[in-house]
């Protein structure tokens, strides 16, 4: 039997919605405009990846913010034709990655072989976060934990935290 890969933690997000732009960031500056719009309306982006040129932007916002966000995007002449609200998603975060591609590669292989929908991923200083079809988020965590080992007495963490800003 193959030995499990040790990790220090795994966290699952609350329900989120994927927001995409397929004409990212140069002319017009979709990333800047979208970030400005969300900030002005107090909408947090729990996750975002973007690259300039002809590539795209993917961000995730709280599902309960979707209606407000969509209304403001629809009211923007520039953004309404460039930004689309998509799938219900969740974030699955595990750490540490040690700047080693093998942990990411293993996770992608495990999840893909279980037909779990992956919309994207990103590294942070220590963690890797995958954007997963929300319906499959729990199954994704279970699948990973068949081959990744949490510390003794540790369990996956779930979102239980709200930040209020003024």
């Amino acid at each position: 039997m193959t030995e499990k890969i040790p990790i220090n933690g795994l966290k699952l997000s609350e329900p989120l919605v994927a927001v995409r732009s397929c004409s990212a960031s140069r002319e017009p500056d979709v990333m800047g405009l979208l970030c400005d719009l969300f900030a002005r309306h107090h909408i947090n982006m729990a996750y975002m990846t973007a690259a300039g040129g002809a590539d795209a932007l993917l961000c995730c916002i709280c599902a309960e913010d979707q209606d407000v966000a969509a209304a403001h995007v629809a009211a923007s002449a520039v953004l309404k034709s460039r930004v689309a609200f998509g799938e219900a998603v969740g974030l699955l975060t595990f750490y540490p990655h040690h700047a080693d591609l093998s942990l990411l590669g293993k996770a992608l292989q495990i999840l893909s072989n279980r037909h779990i929908g992956i919309l994207g991923w990103a590294s942070s200083i220590a963690a890797l976060t995958l954007v997963i079809d929300f319906e499959q988020l729990e199954a994704a965590a279970e699948s990973l934990l068949e081959q990744f080992q949490l510390p003794l007495n540790a369990a996956p963490l779930r979102a239980d935290f709200k930040v209020r800003q003024t």
Binding site: A99, S102, L108, Q109, L119, W121, S123
Partner: peptide, 20 residues
């Protein structure tokens, strides 16, 4: 990616996104 890691390829940051 696992084979690349086996060749000691390390990253500073990595991300990906589906284009729909």
């Amino acid at each position: 990616l696992q084979r690349m890691a086996g060749n000691d390829l390390a990253f500073r940051a990595v991300w990906a996104q589906a284009d729909g």
